[in-house]
């Protein structure tokens, strides 16, 4: 797989980042160098090894289903200027 400018541009778009031309020029060789180095992971035989998604094994943890006080609507909305009729207001979808 080749790490080139068009791949970096595509990945950035997926991540909702718009990179400037100079950022693309700077990042491409840097990310290529990093990913080439990290490709050494492929050397390791991991056949049949269960991925360790957590460093310490955990099981499903449930808490008792009892109602408790959470943030009020007013509190939840207190950090933004974009609100209307008790709701968050966002940019238009279409």
């Amino acid at each position: 797989m080749e790490i080139n400018e068009s791949l970096i541009r595509k990945v950035a778009e997926v991540a909702r980042l718009e990179l400037t031309d100079s950022e693309i020029k700077k990042f491409t060789p840097q990310l290529r160098e990093a990913l080439e180095n990290f490709s050494k992971l492929q050397e390791v035989d991991t056949k049949g090894v269960k991925p360790s998604f957590q460093p310490v094994e955990i099981k499903n943890v449930l808490r008792e289903d009892v109602p408790k006080q959470c943030l009020t609507q007013e509190q939840a909305l207190s950090q933004t200027k974009h609100k209307k009729d008790g709701y968050f207001k966002g940019p238009k979808v279409v």
Partner: peptide
């Protein structure tokens, strides 16, 4: 599979 899952498997081997 080549990067993310592989890294998680290597975490298991390291542990």
């Amino acid at each position: 599979d080549a990067y993310y899952i592989k890294a998680m498997q290597i975490r298991a081997l390291m542990t």
